[in-house]
Deep mutational scan, measured.
Amino acid sequence: NQASVVANQLIPIQTALTLVMMRSEVVTPVGIPAEDIPRLVSMQVNRAVPLGTTLMPDMVKGYA
């Protein structure tokens, strides 16, 4: 099973992502693949992302 990127904390809207905000976890449905974590650093979320939420491509500006 492929690991996805999951929020390690509440990430407020417009926040630039850092490594400490994300973790990898095998979840359903599958979100952004964990191997993309380095690419996500400094990208902004376009909505508030609660703790434990799987990051989906449409939540990160410039990802999809």
Score class of each variant (00 low, 15 high):
residue 59 M to T: 05
residue 27 V to C: 06
residue 7 A to S: 11
residue 38 P to N: 13
residue 35 E to Y: 14
residue 18 T to I: 06
residue 52 G to V: 03
residue 46 N to Y: 09
residue 42 S to N: 15
residue 23 R to W: 04
residue 38 P to M: 12
residue 58 D to Y: 14
residue 7 A to K: 01
residue 56 M to K: 08
residue 22 M to R: 00
residue 3 A to P: 15
residue 2 Q to M: 11
residue 34 A to S: 12
residue 8 N to G: 08
residue 24 S to E: 09
residue 63 Y to Q: 03
residue 56 M to D: 04
residue 47 R to G: 05
residue 16 A to Q: 13
residue 15 T to D: 03
residue 63 Y to C: 05
residue 14 Q to L: 14
residue 24 S to D: 06
residue 12 P to R: 09
residue 58 D to Q: 09
residue 47 R to S: 10
residue 11 I to T: 00
residue 16 A to C: 07
residue 2 Q to G: 11
residue 64 A to Y: 09
residue 5 V to K: 01
residue 19 L to N: 07
residue 22 M to A: 01
residue 35 E to V: 15
residue 33 P to A: 08
residue 49 V to F: 02
residue 8 N to V: 10
residue 17 L to S: 00
residue 52 G to Q: 02
residue 54 T to N: 00
residue 61 K to Q: 13
residue 55 L to G: 00
residue 22 M to W: 03
residue 3 A to Q: 09
residue 3 A to C: 08
residue 19 L to R: 11
residue 43 M to T: 04
residue 17 L to E: 01
residue 37 I to V: 06
residue 41 V to S: 03
residue 55 L to A: 01
residue 43 M to W: 06
residue 15 T to V: 09
residue 26 V to E: 08
residue 35 E to G: 15
residue 9 Q to W: 07
residue 43 M to Y: 10
residue 21 M to R: 00
residue 12 P to N: 09
residue 64 A to T: 15
residue 60 V to G: 02
residue 1 N to W: 13
residue 9 Q to F: 08
residue 37 I to E: 02
residue 8 N to I: 06
residue 56 M to Y: 08
residue 56 M to R: 09
residue 23 R to Q: 05
residue 6 V to R: 01
residue 29 P to T: 05
residue 20 V to R: 14
residue 23 R to N: 06
residue 36 D to R: 08
residue 11 I to M: 03
residue 36 D to Q: 14
residue 2 Q to V: 13
residue 5 V to R: 00
residue 49 V to T: 05
residue 64 A to W: 09
residue 23 R to C: 06
residue 7 A to H: 01
residue 58 D to H: 10
residue 8 N to F: 04
residue 16 A to F: 13
residue 54 T to S: 04
residue 63 Y to L: 06
residue 1 N to Y: 14
residue 42 S to M: 10
residue 20 V to Q: 13
residue 15 T to Q: 08
residue 62 G to P: 05
residue 31 G to C: 03
residue 64 A to K: 05
residue 49 V to R: 00
residue 49 V to I: 11
residue 44 Q to P: 08
residue 43 M to F: 10
residue 46 N to F: 09
residue 17 L to R: 00
residue 35 E to M: 12
residue 23 R to Y: 06
residue 61 K to E: 14
residue 31 G to E: 01
residue 29 P to Q: 05
residue 62 G to L: 07
residue 17 L to H: 01
residue 47 R to F: 08
residue 29 P to G: 04
residue 25 E to H: 08
residue 40 L to I: 11
residue 36 D to C: 09
residue 40 L to E: 00
residue 20 V to W: 13
residue 48 A to E: 14
residue 34 A to K: 05
residue 58 D to V: 08
